[in-house]
Design a protein around this nucleic acid. Structure first.
Lengths: 149, 149
DNA sequence: ATTGAAAGATCTAGTGC
DNA sequence: GCACTAGATCTTTCAAT
């Protein structure tokens, strides 16, 4: 994980990022007004934040249930063979249903967040995960999501 | 959680959403080209997806570590007093460090994802969570995030 | 680093099919 | 539901400070 900046972020940078998190399509004109700067000044700041990868990109927030992904779950995974190199995250990367993958300091090695259409689809996904990465899985089904920011 | 559409999404809607998840700032012209439709047609579809809340908004993806939030953790919480109404998510909603809040079908009632600057800040946050919602907490520190889509 | 201004690209709203 | 057009708004680029 390389460091990505020599200079730190000032208050205006933080303001711009806060605004862009709230509205990823905010125009430079809007941002300039809130920051009290000219459009060009805001533009160069935003481009710099993007180049430094402080801002990694922009995305639409989509309702998973609207896409038919009615079931979400945390899946904790434990490698079964300690003698093998543990490359589970790389092996699992191609599986679309896996939204995030973290290594953790807990009973298990990794925690995934997955989204599927149905309990049946979760079962199939777990089989795929176990077969692909040679791991045991422990799943915690999400009943309701109150907020995700 | 009310249903939000009578008509289902067609292939073009799905294409547009995929593109907008990859690039939340994609222009209507770009989307129109990929969809093989006119700009107006794409515009009305995107506006309709937004109105139906299939697309819930747009956001900049910001590197938490660039903001000084060096430590992320899952926090599982258990209400301590079953005789009280369980409104933990509402009580915790105002805490900025909490990125997401789900109720789950597992040993605990809720799982939060939190981001803080340091172990010391995590300790303070846990105290705040326990005091605010009258709950026990069990934390799992994230060592590395391989991907979050 | 910030400003200002001009040219080009994009969005929006209206019309008609 | 889709396409086309015109006017408004936004972004980009560049010279200047």
């Amino acid at each position: 994980m390389a460091e990505n900046s020599k200079e730190s972020l000032d208050e205006i940078d933080r303001l711009l990022m806060r605004e862009l998190v709230v509205d990823g399509r905010a125009t430079l004109a809007t941002l300039a007004e809130k920051a009290g700067l000219s459009i060009s000044a805001v533009q160069s700041r935003v481009r710099r934040l993007e180049a430094r990868q402080v801002i990694r990109g922009y995305t639409a927030k989509v309702d998973p249930e609207a896409l038919g992904l009615m079931l979400s779950a945390f899946v904790a995974i434990t490698p079964l063979d300690p003698s093998q190199p543990d490359d589970a995250p790389a092996r699992l990367r191609h599986i679309d249903a896996i939204e995030s993958c973290h290594s953790v300091a807990g009973d298990e090695s990794y925690i995934l967040l997955v989204r599927v259409a149905s309990p049946r689809a979760l079962e199939q996904l777990l089989q795929e995960i176990r077969a692909t990465a040679n791991v045991a899985t422990r799943s915690t089904v999400i009943l309701q999501t109150f907020y995700e920011r």
